[in-house]
Amino acid sequence: MSQPPSNPYPGSYPPPQQPGGYPPPQQSGYPVPQQPEGYPVPQQPEGYPAPQQPDGYPAPQQPQYGGYPTSGQPYGGPVTPAGPPPQKKSNVTRILLITLAVVLVLCLGGAAVLFFAAKGKVGEVVDATKTRVVAPATLAGRAKATDPTLQQGAQQLETELKKSLPDATSTVGAFYGEPAKKDLVMIAAASGLNANPGKTLDDTVSGMKSTDVEVGEMKTVDAGPLGGEAKCGDATAAQVPMGVCVWSDRGSIGMILIYFKTGVQAQAELATMRGQIEQKG
């Protein structure tokens, strides 16, 4: 009778060498415990990224929820959406320093110093000594500007005028209207004896053209019932259009600047505004 083969299932199990029907540990058909067959090493399971940053989720220090940062809150925590963007300052605020420091102090002040220095030569102009400039309660239907920045600017305007023109008999600087409605007016004027109104006017216009304010052609216009000479034209500062008018007579010099308007529009209001600013007798 033939003997059964020593290994009836070749290739499946090694021949038993110990009682009990179990193979010796060193030759088991199973992989060693350190790295089981078909499984990756425990340090980084297959198909999953490292524990520091789970697949499909951002790093824990800045999770996303609903498209907004959660400021360190756990997943599903309350959303802290970003607030509204800060409002940009108006164009008028951006060009306020330009109109104060450049147009007024360097232009109007520089020209006016010359005509006030000549006051000893014009003793015959008695009416000029009675001329005064004021800031009316309203200007051509516009109330004084209530914006704090413009109010502060008006105070600075008045201070600089008095500083530049110590011999002036009166000075005025003010803003009227509402920037939000694109209806804003700046006035600057001073009174005193003016020996040569025409030269003073030309000096003021020339001073404007030498500044950062872009001034177009200043045309001679009717100065109105108060007499003297006047010029109006278009100007631009910080890409904001402005209509500018300057007047000069024996007893005063003044400037009207209307934001968001043209020189023609400023000219149409020159006589009315000047009549409310300049007072004689």
Rank of each mutant, 00 (worst) to 15 (best):
P5E: 09
S12K: 14
Y13D: 05
P14S: 08
P14R: 08
G21P: 10
Y22S: 13
P24D: 08
E37M: 13
Q43H: 13
Y48H: 09
Y48F: 15
Q52G: 14
G56E: 02
Q62H: 15
P63G: 06
G66K: 11
S71Q: 12
P81S: 05
G83V: 06
P84S: 08
P85F: 00
K89E: 12
S90N: 12
R94G: 04
L100D: 08
L104S: 12
L108P: 11
G109K: 01
A111R: 05
K121M: 10
T129L: 08
V134L: 11
L139V: 12
A145D: 09
D147H: 08
T149G: 03
Q156V: 14
A168T: 07
A168R: 04
A168F: 04
T169P: 08
A180P: 04
A180Y: 09
V185N: 01
M186H: 10
N194C: 14
G198W: 01
T200D: 12
V205C: 05
S210E: 12
E217K: 14
K219A: 14
T220Y: 01
V221I: 15
G224I: 03
G227S: 07
A238S: 13
A238P: 06
D249T: 06
I253G: 12
M255T: 11
L257C: 12
Q267W: 03
A271W: 02
A271V: 08
G275V: 04
G275F: 00
